[in-house]
Design a protein around this nucleic acid. Structure first.
Lengths: 222, 222
DNA sequence: AGAACATTGAAACAGTTGTTTCCTACCATG
DNA sequence: CATGGTAGGAAACAACTGTTTCAATGTTCT
């Protein structure tokens, strides 16, 4: 009981890679269990169902992330006591927290791809689970961003945060494909930290972009 | 032969909506054919296989898009003969071309979600098909962007274009979910054109962001 | 030691998947 | 009218899906 069964972690390790490579529906339990050299029934025994396995894969990443991120925000608030935390610092802190979690297992690529799938994949259950489980961390972060960007209307800030989220998730989630193209065209092998360095000014500039021109009288279809 | 069978278009109309809602693997041919009130075998009869049906759904969007976009770029090059086309104009033209195609059928949401799936979904066959079929249009566009942003190093421009692609695809692909949240939190119902208006300054600012600080002496892991 | 428990193993379950087969209806051309 | 090729319908196909069952293990505590 001190450490959970070897079978459980072997399933999780194998499942997260296969999920990231092919998606959830396209990955069968038999593929997972045979690749993990584990009995087929053990997934249902340890996790209950495939759906629960998927959630467990996410939990293993997101639980440590939530802890670290909360701690990092605590430090930040203690340091900037009273005054406002600058946007760049907030973004930098979030990036660092995200990067730290999977660093131990060289699985950042998997983590990011899973995040991308969580958004794009079959509508509901996973996004609802993540929202219910980790929504509070995200709320705390957005509240700090609100204080850091008082000039932005609330709706504008909401959308821009999601724009930037899209940039990051899309980039890392398609990292292998993009990296191949970049390597072929520019001969430059690019790593994760290098990519973060490139991402930083773009994200900051996006958040600080001038406000859009006000909407014209609009008839909308859609 | 003058117009293709009613069955074919009924299958395509139904399939694109279901694919966009649930993904490819999660949508069975039986779901499609029953909802389209069409015989199950007709998919294989008219398209050959499910994979070909998926490609046909994309072709029906991308073929007209490629035609329109090429024409729009022709016009642009004729108008700016000799001189360089500004970046904002290029982005605006691309946005307009993308928006025009599905406008006739009120299916922009579907189109965008399909684009998102094409990137995020099970890695290979679809992205390869799109790359092979429509890569030339994209190359023409990126070459014009290169001329419009001569101060950007090639690699930097490559990555920023994909950053911005991520922003757009991620946003529209998760549009329904995001719109629900936004509507709940800010009571504001947002339409596609409204979203494009918000997107524009962010994308431009991202492309024009200051160059990142040069990389430090780096030891890189993975 | 034996009893209680948690974990595995192999097999079967019922349901769904994409695809194929075969037969009927059509409809223009000979 | 007959006949060719095209499209549609019902049923079956084999393969695969997630899940369950039940016996055979090991493991742990008294």
């Amino acid at each position: 009981m001190a450490q959970q069964s070897d079978t459980v972690t072997r399933i999780l390790d194998t499942a997260e890679v296969l999920f990231a490579e092919r998606g959830f529906a396209e990955t069968s339990l038999r593929t997972i269990t045979s690749k993990a050299r584990v009995n087929l029934a053990s997934v249902n025994y340890h996790f209950g169902s495939k759906k629960s396995l998927i959630q467990a894969v996410f939990t293993r990443y997101l639980d440590p992330f939530a802890v670290r991120f909360h701690a990092a925000l605590d430090e930040l608030e203690a340091h900037y006591t009273g005054s406002v935390i600058p946007l760049e610092v907030l973004l930098e802190t979030m990036a660092r927290s995200v990067l730290e979690v999977p660093a131990e297992r060289d699985s950042l690529k998997v983590f990011m791809r899973l995040l991308g799938l969580a958004y794009s994949q079959a509508q509901g259950h996973l996004r609802r689970y993540i929202q219910a489980q980790y929504g509070s961390v995200f709320s705390r972060f957005t509240e700090l961003v609100r204080q850091a960007t008082p000039e932005l209307p609330d709706a504008e800030r909401f959308w821009r945060l999601h724009f930037m989220l899209g940039t990051v998730i899309f980039t890392f989630s398609g990292l292998d494909a993009l990296r191949d193209i970049a390597e072929k065209d520019y001969g430059e092998h690019i790593g994760v930290r290098e990519l973060v360095r490139r991402l930083r000014p773009v994200v900051v500039a996006g958040m600080n972009a001038p406000l859009p021109e006000p909407a014209p009288a609009q008839r909308e279809a859609g």
